[in-house]
Amino acid sequence: MSTSLASAAGRTSQCADAATTVRVWDVPTRVFHWSLALCFAGAWLTSDSERLRDLHVMLGYTFAGLIVFRVLWGLVGTRYARFTSFLFSPRKFASYVKSLITRKPEHHLGHNPAGSVSIFAMLGLGVLIVLSGFTVYQDIGGEWLEEFHEVAASTMLAVVFVHIAGVIVSSLLHRENLVRSMVTGSKRGAPSDGIRHTHRTVGAALLVAVLGFWWAYQSGTADAWLPQPTATAGERTDRHHDD
């Protein structure tokens, strides 16, 4: 009798924990996520426009800065932002994919194994895109490097679509809106598993840095400390007045 009551109480407690909303994603992680998505989308849409070339370059620089920030935050950030929280073995990845196929998905409060693969892939591709884009901007490497830059960007776009599809599938199977959680920072979980600090100050500083850089770039202030393309340095003197 007492054993049954204890078991029932345990199940009730687990259900209560599962229904509790806890903070998982800190503010810097969320600001990074949406800022990177905006920069990549904007850079992709302006990649073939000569008239919008400066906007493309500005977004590229921002994209680079965001990646640097994410690498640092992956080392010193909060629990679920750190790389160590979503380093999964191939066996864990296979087990998670199998759980999706059988419609009995393993629940991960932070990044799941499939999501972690896409995150590392996007960060790695992001580095290649930045390095190749900068050398192309400096007129170094020739046409092959420009093609490499385009291939890297196209590959990342494919990874982004796979990532979005994975988010949709996981949201449906887990019955949890993962997109909303990256906006609010909250998910269902046990109270003890939530993060204590959201680091709003760091998140605000990151947003101010992004917006401040955009202002400096558009006003021409950033020209004093940003490297200029060697082949067209003279042409960029009046780049903000061409239109």
Rank of each mutant, 00 (worst) to 15 (best):
E147I: 06
F161R: 01
A158V: 13
Y80G: 12
V68P: 01
K98G: 06
P113E: 06
H149L: 02
T102A: 14
A152C: 10
S95I: 06
H107S: 13
D54E: 14
S89W: 04
R103T: 11
E50S: 14
G141F: 02
R53V: 15
E150A: 07
G126A: 07
L131S: 05
T155S: 06
E150S: 11
F86V: 11
L52W: 07
V162G: 09
G115F: 13
A114P: 09
E150G: 04
V130N: 05
K104E: 12
T78V: 06
H108G: 12
Y61L: 11
A114C: 11
S118A: 15
F86G: 13
S47Y: 01
S132H: 03
T102I: 15
S95Q: 09
Y61P: 07
L75Y: 06
Y61A: 10
R53D: 12
E50F: 08
T46H: 08
I101T: 12
A158D: 07
V117S: 02
P105Q: 08
Q138M: 08
S47C: 12
G133E: 02
G77S: 09
G141D: 00
H108Q: 06
I67D: 06
Y137A: 09
I119Q: 06
G141K: 00
T102E: 10
W73V: 12
G115W: 11
G124R: 00
F134E: 07
G110M: 00
F88R: 00
L125F: 10
G65C: 07
Y80P: 08
L52S: 09
G77W: 02
E106V: 00
F120P: 12
V57N: 03
S154W: 00
H56Q: 10
K98N: 11
R53G: 12
D48L: 05
L55W: 07
T102L: 15
H107W: 10
A121V: 13
S85E: 08
V159P: 04
H56P: 14
K104N: 13
P105C: 09
F161G: 12
A153H: 00
E147D: 04
A152V: 07
T62L: 13
F161L: 14
V151N: 00
M122L: 15
T102Q: 10
V71W: 03
A64H: 03
Y80T: 07
D54H: 11
A94K: 03
F120G: 14
G110P: 03
M58H: 05
V127E: 04
P105R: 00
Y96H: 15
P90C: 14
S85T: 09
G115R: 01
L109Y: 02
E150W: 00
I119A: 14
L145I: 10
G126F: 02
A158G: 11
N112P: 13
T62H: 02
R79A: 15
G124P: 09
V71S: 04
E147Y: 01
I67G: 08
I140S: 01
G77N: 08
Y80C: 09
H108I: 08
I140K: 01
R79H: 11
T78H: 01
V76E: 05
Y96S: 12
A81M: 06
L128P: 08
V130F: 10
R79V: 14
D48F: 05
L87K: 01
H108K: 01
E150Y: 00
A94G: 08
G110W: 01
L123N: 06
G124F: 03
M58I: 13
R82V: 15
Y137P: 06
K98M: 15
